[in-house]
C-alpha cells in the first residue's frame, strides 16, 4: 500500500523554544496513525506544520505526494481536518455549516444521507453551540468527510466526551477506515489508541520517544497496557 503522509526532519521553533525537533513519520494508505504525547508535547504544532498553517523551520512534508504549503487549494480537496476547537462562527445552525462546507468541494458527499447515518437529522435546525459534545464531534467528522477526502486529520476528537459517545465515535472512525480513508489522529485516551491505531508515535518535548504498534509499545516498555506504557514513557523516559 502506498504512503499517504511523509514527514522527514520536521523542526519548528518559537523564538528560543524548540516545539518540534527532527521528527520523522510515514503513514500508509488506509491506516490509522496516532500521534501521542502529554499536553504541550508538540502534537498540535506538528499537525499545524503538516497542514501548512505553520511554517516549519526545517524538514520536508508531503501529503498525498504534495507540499501542503505549495498546493493548498488542490490538496485540501482531498484532505479533511478537524481542529481541537470546533472553529465555527458561533450561532450557525447545523444545516448552514453543512451547506457552506458542502459548497467548498468539487466532488462532495450527499451530506443529508450522512447526517441521517450519523443520527443528526433532527438537529439540522439546532445551533451548533447547543449540540451535545458527542453530537458536535460527529458533526466535525461529517464536515471533515464532506469532500470525500483520502486523508482526515483529527486533533483530540474525543476529549471531553462520555464513554458512550466516545465508543460511538470509534465506530464511525472504523467505518471510515473500512472505506479506505487514512486517518491521522491525536488522543489522550490510551484505550482508544489501542482500539483504533495501526501505528503510534509518542513524542515528548517535540522529540520522538517510541514508535510502533500499540501492542509493540506495551511489550517493549514491559507494561500491562497502553495506559501504563504511556505513563512510563512520558514520566520516566523509559524506552
Amino acid at each position: 500500500m502506498g504512503e499517504v503522509i511523509r514527514v522527514s526532519g520536521l523542526t519548528k521553533r518559537f523564538g528560543q523554544k524548540i516545539a518540534v525537533q527532527d521528527l520523522h513519520l510515514s503513514v500508509r494508505a488506509g491506516s490509522i496513525f496516532g500521534l501521542l504525547g502529554s499536553n504541550g508535547a508538540g502534537k498540535s504544532t506538528t499537525i499545524d506544520c503538516m497542514l501548512g498553517t505553520e511554517r516549519a523551520d526545517a524538514g520536508e512534508i508531503r501529503i498525498l505526494g504534495t507540499d501542503p504549503r505549495a498546493n493548498r487549494r488542490s490538496l485540501f480537496q482531498h484532505v479533511g481536518v478537524q481542529f481541537q476547537e470546533s472553529a465555527f462562527q458561533s450561532g450557525l445552525k447545523v444545516r448552514e455549516i453543512c451547506e457552506i462546507t458542502h459548497s467548498l468541494y468539487e466532488n462532495p458527499i450527499d451530506w443529508q444521507k450522512t447526517v441521517a447515518e450519523f443520527e443528526l437529522s433532527d438537529k439540522l435546525k439546532t445551533t451548533i453551540s447547543d449540540l451535545s459534545g458527542g453530537e458536535r464531534q460527529k458533526l466535525c467528522i461529517l464536515l471533515a468527510m464532506m469532500g470525500r477526502p483520502k486523508v482526515i486529520f483529527l486533533d483530540e476528537l474525543t476529549t471531553g466526551l462520555d464513554p458512550v459517545a466516545r465508543r460511538d465515535i470509534w465506530q464511525t472512525l472504523l467505518r471510515l477506515k473500512q472505506t479506505g480513508v487514512t486517518l491521522f489522529l491525536t488522543s489522550h485516551y490510551m484505550d482508544e489508541v489501542e482500539k483504533l491505531c495501526d501505528e503510534i508515535l509518542v513524542i515528548k518535548g517535540g522529540k520522538e520517544l517510541i514508535r510502533g504498534t500499540a501492542a509493540d509499545v506495551v511489550h517493549r516498555t514491559d507494561s500491562e497496557n497502553m495506559d501504563e506504557a504511556f505513563v512510563k514513557l512520558v514520566e520516566e523516559g523509559i524506552r
Binding site: T53, R73, F76, Q77, F83, E85, A87, Q89, S90, T101
Partner: peptide, 17 residues
C-alpha cells in the same frame, strides 16, 4: 477578532477556499 480567536479563519485555511 472573534473569528480569529475561535480559529474560524484558520479552519478555512485547511479547505480549498
Amino acid at each position: 477578532s472573534s473569528y480569529r480567536e475561535k480559529k474560524v479563519l484558520k479552519r478555512y485555511k485547511v479547505t480549498p477556499i
